[in-house]
Structures are given as structure tokens and as C-alpha cells.
Write a protein that binds this DNA or RNA. Sequence first.
RNA 1: CGGGGCGUAGCGCAGCCUGGUAGCGCACCUGCCUUGGGAGCAGGGGGUCGGAGGUUCAAAUCCUCUCGCCCCGACCA
Length: 571
Amino acid sequence: MRYSQYFLITTKETPAEAETVSHQLMLRAGMIRKVATGIYNYLPLGLRSIRKMEQIVREEMDRSGAIELHMPMVVPGELWRESGRWEKYGKELLRFKDRKDAEFCLGPTHEEVVTDIIRNLVRSYRQLPLNVYQIQTKFRDEIRPRFGLMRGREFIMKDAYSFDMDDTGANLAYQKMYDAYCRIFERCGLKFRAVEADSGAIGGSSSHEFMVLAESGEDAIVSCDSCHYAANVEKAELLFREVGTPQPSEELRKVATPDQRTIEEVAAFLNIPPARLVKTLVVRTDAGEVLAVLLRGDRELNEIKLCHVLNCNAVEMAPEEVVREVTGAPPGFAGPVGLKVKILADNEVRGLADFVTGANEEGFHLMGVNNGRDFSVAQWGDLRIASAGDPCPRCEGGHLEMWRGIEVGHVFKLGTKYSAALKATVLDENGESVTPIMGCYGIGIGRTVAAAIEQNHDENGIVWPMALAPFQVLVTAINPNQENIRTAAEQLYADLQAAGIEVLYDDRDERPGSKFKDADLIGIPLRITVGDRGLKNGEVELLERRGGVKTMLPVAGAASRVAEMVREALR
RNA sequence: CGGGGCGUAGCGCAGCCUGGUAGCGCACCUGCCUUGGGAGCAGGGGGUCGGAGGUUCAAAUCCUCUCGCCCCGACCA
């Protein structure tokens, strides 16, 4: 591609709308342009990287035995009613009506549609196992889209769905996808980890998330420093180690703590560490039940774990009037002693004695509080968020480290949630109806490309891994108006193309400085500079974007040498 | 949804407080010049100042409403 003929507009200044590096660089490099919140144009350069990603995914999915198809983006509401998700999915599901007033939605995921296909077309166990996938534009009306392609409302996703006759088959399908995902992200040149995850709104029994490690990641993950355990913090289990019931040594007493509401304030006021406090959170479930949760003062509630314990879909912090009603005090002074509602407590609280809690009275806290003597807990459980240094739940002696990551892929075992809801059945070898067991597997295409930039950039721009680079080689003619330079550059361009290399040829009548700045910004892995300096010795200069290594190559063998380097990088 | 901020040329911004014929840098166009890290000179085009209403002789500027965008929060008692 000749740069002068291409549609590539870069900017020197960083657009004000962008916060994260990948977003800024994708805008500046002319890869994307915003149309509306969370909705983007893919400009030619950006589309090339997107297509690269899609192709890698396609190849690895095909290799794993999955079969590509394509489902509609516009989905009848009726199918979503059948699964029950029309009511459950919430505002992320963009709904609308057609001219006949029939309900539709933009598909945020396609379990319903794919299950509909299977129940209509698959009759016999002989047709299974089956794993079908598509690469498609999805729409989720996110609460807060941000970071460019990282969290858009409209985005490109690869979604795959497996159908098996039994658990053994389903587990095998899951493992195949897990392996395929590892190959995909390895081919992209990304540093990533597969972590245990909560299966969330999609449902199902177990799942792994594929996390690209990056400081700017929206997710926190933990991993063990001595074994292979890794999990999303939402999921990370914590061991309960029986420490025996601690003996109270203090009397219960009330202390004035005027205007001291937060853990930090109370701890500072009483001059004790936050870990000596027990916080009492008044929560309300989506079913309307109000209860209290106790946690050590320096810990945080894991709402997902709490939901699992309570068997509900969501919990929220109770609004102030509810807190007042339940505790008799404004927020900031809640405590378990004398509380009217059911009390749940994190396992860790079992080992505490003589702690501090709110007094359920404005301006007062209690000291010397003890479980059993002063109040009783209805239910114990693992309710808190893991933190760095917690013991590993899987091995002896290991401790958890914390990372930040970007979720680029997710694999789920779904069980029969959708196949049962949509009454998909096939006949087994005995002629019995069996509900197939499903799995679903997603990869965020645009998000992976953005994550690759988060992980591969420097102060001058993007440093593409070869596999995702929009072009593999950039040929820069220092001065295309100069006969010998143009001739040599054109020849190199032709030779590289003939060798099957994706090459961008900067033939613009611009000053070298601008061309070099653009080159760094768009981050093509290999840059060949053709100018007088080298040509007088019959050479051109090769610059590797990553590492900045410069090598002089003889003009004659340059194309084949560079072509070989590209192939080497893709191996 | 709550809080904060911003909408002025394609991009980045000033002007607004204190109303008086809309500016700067980059980009773009023409010409000259220049060609190894975003050159220089000269000339030029481009804006219903997000939208609607109001106040005023006069509104980018003041008032009201509205739309859009960005950030934070929606997890702590």
C-alpha cells in the first residue's frame, strides 16, 4: 500500500476524549474514530489489525474443530422471553419494536439464537458433539462505556457454543476451547493468564477468564506465588482456618465517638488499627430482604459471594432510611449488638475478640464486643474480597499476589440452562430424549487489539506484535522526489510485496521528520529507510520498532532478508 | 442513576467573570523554499460559538430549558 494513496490520518495532539494509552494511540494513529458514546468507526488502519485478530481466532477455532456460522444481530424478543432473560437482562439489552409492533433486541450474546438453531436442526446424538462459532458485532447498552474499544457498547466478539450429550463430552469441549484460547493469545504475543471466574449473568457452573496483564486493567486478579492457582478477585476463595473460639477479656462498654463514621475515622479517633474494628454493613437483596453483614474493619465485602450465600441475584447497600429503621441510628454507627435483622458474618470474624463496632446510636461505638456473648450470628461464610498476602486456597504455604488485568476472553460451562429453557432435545442411542449440555466461549476482538496496545507501546507510539500489526513492514523513502531514492524504494516495495509481505510504502512528499514520527506512532514492527546515507554504500537501514535496533542491509538482499524476519516473527 | 466538568474551525485551546463586528497553534489550500526525527517565508479558505427560548439597542459572553460528551461514583457505615 502506498501511503500517499492510503486513507490514514494521524494527529499530533491527543484528543481530549481519551484517557487510556490504547484509546489515545488508536485515535492518534487514525485507527478508530468515535461516532457516539461507546460506538466507533474502524478506519482502514484499525480495521487491518481487527481483521488480523479475527483471522487468528478463526484459524485456531477451526483447528479446534469449531465450525463458523453467522447469526443475526437483531433478535426476536420472543426467544429471549423463552429463556427468561427478556426480564432478567436489564437495560443493557437494547430493545425496540419493528413496524408491526413486534419486540426485538440487539443481541448482546447469542445463547438463545444458537439454541434455537440446534433444537430445530439437530435430532440425533449422531449429530453431536457440535461447536459452532461466529465473529459478529454485538451491542450492549453499557452503563458507562469507556476507554475506546476496551468497553464499547457496540463491539466485535467471537462467540462459540458447544453442544454435547454428556458431561464428559462437555468437559472435553471446554478443555478444547481453553487450549485454543491459550494458543490464540500466545499467537498475539500477549502476556496473559487464565483465571477462575464467576460465571455471572450468563449462568452455568464453572468458567475461566483470560486476562491480559496490564496496569490499566479494569479487573483485579489474584495468583498464588507457589502453585498454579489464579482467580478473579470476585471469585477467589478464602480458606477458613479454625483458630478456636477466642475468649473475651474485656467488658462491653459504650464510648462516645461524635461524628466518627467511617472505619478510618473511628480507628484514628480511638487510636486502634482498623483490623480491631468489625464493620456492620446493612444490605438489601433484590428480593427486598434486609440483613446485616459483619466484616473485619479493614476488609471489603464481596457482593458476589454474598449473593451466592443468600441465593439471590443482587445485593445493594441499604439506603439511609432503611439503615435508620434497622439500627436506630444514621449510617456510620451500625453494630451487631441488639440489631433486629438477621446477621451474617465473614469467617474471619470468628477469630476476633474484644473488637469495636457501632452502638446503633448516633455518636457512639461499642468496645470490648464479643461474638456469642454480646450477639449471635445466624450464618457464617466466606464473604470478603481477597487481598494480597492471603493464604492460597489450593496449596500449603502459598500466598496470593494481586494483579490487574483486561478480560479478553471467557469460557463457560453452561450446563443445560439454555437447552432446557428452550426445550432443545436430541435422541440418544436408546431413543431417549436428552437435553444437550452446553458451553459458551467468547473473545473480545477489539478489546484484545486494544489490550495488545496497552501492553506494547512506548512514549512514541504503538509497538505492534507482528501478528496484530496492520502492516508488517514500512518502507520510508527519505525523499521520493530524488530519482535514485525513489527507484530503490519502489523496487524494495515491489520485492517485499512479491514476497507476500504486507508493506506500507511511505512515498509521501513530506519531510523525513514527519514520516518518522508517524512511523513510530503507527508502530509497524519493521521499518526500512531508503536515503542517500545508505544508498551511497548500496545499503538501506532496517529499524526494529521494538528495541530500536538499527541494521544496515545491502539493497540487493534486503527484501528477502526482511521477509524472512517477518516469517520468523510469526512462527 | 448520583456528583463534577466540558461543548467556540478537522484537532488542541483562548475569549465569557466585566455584553459591543470571533481569535491562536496545529491541520488544510496556493506559491517559493526545503528533504535523515513533526522546517521556513508569503498568501488563503473554513465557525448559524451544541440546540431552543428569554433579557438587551446589542449575546460566544447574562438568565431559563434542553441535547451531547468526558471523568468519578454507584462497595462500606
